[in-house]
Simulated scan of single mutants.
Amino acid sequence: MLPTTDQRLAAREPDGKASLAFLQHWEHLLLLHWKVDPQLIQDTLPPGLHVDLAEDSAWLSIVPFVMNWARPRRLPALPLLSHFLELNVRTYVYDDNGVPGVWFYSLDCSSGPAVWIARKFFKLPYFQARMKAAITDDVHYTCRRADRYGGAPYGSYRLSVFRYGGQGQIRIPEPDTLPFFLLERYYFYAWDDGKLRRGQVAHSPYRYQEADVATFDTIPLCLDDLPLPSTPPDAKHYVDKVKVDVYGLQ
């Protein structure tokens, strides 16, 4: 059974099962989403996770953004750790108890220390990348992964390029809509030595716009051995900024 609306809304509130670990600001988020065959996604998931569906489809998303003021609880912002770029590839899932969340296939990051911390303490598939973002009237964002964990140098992967901004009315996702399904995600899952674990983030609901995308790239999907879409994104969202609390793994 898919999660109910009440279960999706309940995920917004911290469940009290883990301690607050990090404070972060996520800024200039582009969220590109494609419909995908559900069985294809289910075949990539670890035991205990199930593909979540909207419009009878699974969904894959590419999400580049700027991370600012990331810091451990009770500590100030730190050089190389607090301001960096990140790009994730994700899908939408729920566990055996119906708790909705996201499953990350990869998270590219421009900060080496942040990559180490995320792999060590959150068991997430972070990768070192060479990344830039020029922010003027729009965002010009580039990413080239350096797979330190597989030995590939920066030059082994093609450059991914995104140019984007927001357009139109600013909205808050309404329950039982596609933006709510794609944006209102407060749990993430990780696979840790044969065990499924879960972390939580807390923030106010996204204030989103439709994204105006001049350039996008699907290379991140290719790097994760996922199918390349033959069509433009089925949904595109832009979020200017949001403050986020990150809790430890359960």
Rank of each mutant, 00 (worst) to 15 (best):
V115W: 03
H140E: 15
I172R: 09
V242H: 03
F22C: 12
F180Y: 10
D212C: 13
I170G: 14
Y164D: 01
A211Y: 01
F121H: 10
A114D: 04
Y187I: 02
T91V: 05
P14T: 03
G101W: 00
Q209C: 13
Y141L: 00
K123F: 14
F216I: 14
D43W: 05
Q24H: 12
R145W: 07
Y94S: 07
V66E: 02
R144Q: 10
S156Q: 13
A18D: 11
L159E: 07
G165D: 13
Q169Y: 13
V244K: 02
R144C: 08
D224F: 02
W69Y: 08
A58G: 10
T44G: 08
Q128D: 14
C143H: 02
D240W: 03
Q209D: 10
D15R: 01
V161E: 08
L30D: 05
C143T: 07
A146Y: 12
Y187S: 09
Y149V: 08
Y247S: 03
R163D: 12
G165A: 15
L178W: 01
Y186H: 09
D43I: 02
M1S: 14
L2T: 14
R12Q: 10
S61N: 04
K195C: 14
S156D: 14
L226S: 02
Q24D: 11
V51T: 10
V99A: 05
F122W: 05
S61C: 02
